[in-house]
Computed example of a mutant assay.
Amino acid sequence: MKKYEKDQMQKESTLKNEIQDLKCRSMRDNLLFHMVAEERDENCEQKVLKLIEDKLNIPNASNDIRIQRIGAYNAAKTRPIVDKFAFYPDRDRIRQAARQVKDGSIGVSEQFPREIMEKRRKFIPAMLKAREEGKEASSGSTNFSSIRVSIETVSRTVVRMC
């Protein structure tokens, strides 16, 4: 009976990992736009395309598949807008351009499954602490799948998330 339980737990773990991988893959072409003013019954597509053209200085960026707000409308909160791109290079070009905007008027980030975001939140304090100590610490790869600290640190462990 214990062997059966162990096998079932292993299968369940494998399935969870596969589902998480599929979620990551389905979201890899998405960007989230934060702090974009929201009105009831708005046209998100026009709003995002205007933002990309005006703030990021990228004209004719209309290779999007779908643009929509996430969640139910709440007048007290501004929901992020998710933008699914048809071509990864377009998504990456917009993400890189958004990094150059320093006025804090908008935020652009990659979209990840909730489970991944919860795991990553646990590692942010370690990254910030390493930076405070003068060590080079970053989110690792472009999709924030790990936290890396420079070779001079005590631990050279890279923790993979996605």
Rank of each mutant, 00 (worst) to 15 (best):
R25D: 07
K2T: 01
L22E: 10
D90Q: 08
R28E: 06
K84L: 10
K23I: 00
I147K: 05
N43F: 04
L56T: 14
L15A: 06
I70T: 13
E38L: 02
I116S: 11
A75C: 08
E18D: 07
E5W: 00
K129M: 13
V36W: 10
V159D: 03
I116D: 09
Q8S: 12
I116A: 11
R156M: 06
V48Y: 01
R93P: 02
D83M: 13
D90C: 09
T157L: 03
R40Q: 13
K23N: 07
I151C: 02
E133G: 00
R91F: 03
D103M: 00
T153C: 12
S150T: 02
K6I: 01
Q8T: 12
A61S: 14
L49W: 13
M127W: 08
D90A: 07
L15E: 12
E118R: 05
R66H: 10
Q111K: 14
A61M: 15
V159Q: 13
K135A: 03
K47S: 06
D21H: 05
I81Q: 14
V48K: 14
A86N: 03
S138D: 11
K135D: 05
L128V: 10
I147D: 02
R156P: 05
Y4D: 04
S150W: 04
N43M: 05
K6S: 01
S109T: 14
S139W: 09
L51Q: 02
T78L: 00
D90V: 06
E133H: 04
T14E: 09
E152T: 04
K129I: 08
G104N: 15
N17H: 03
I81C: 14
S155D: 12
I52Q: 06
A126K: 12
K11H: 14
F85Y: 14
N143F: 13
S62A: 09
K129E: 12
R66V: 03
C44Q: 08
K77A: 14
E18G: 09
V108D: 07
I116H: 07
R93H: 11
E12Q: 03
E5F: 01
E118S: 10
A86H: 05
V149K: 02
E53W: 04
K84H: 10
T78Q: 04
T142V: 04
I151N: 07
K23Q: 09
A37D: 12
C162V: 15
S13Q: 11
E136S: 10
S105V: 10
R156I: 07
L15Q: 10
D7T: 06
R91G: 02
E45R: 04
E12S: 00
M127E: 06
R79I: 09
R69Y: 00
E45C: 00
E53Y: 01
K135Y: 13
S141Q: 11
Q100R: 11
I106N: 01
S105F: 08
M161H: 05
T78W: 01
E45K: 02
P125K: 15
E12Y: 10
N74Y: 15
K23V: 01
E136L: 09
R69C: 09
R156H: 10
E39I: 00
Q8F: 06
E39M: 01
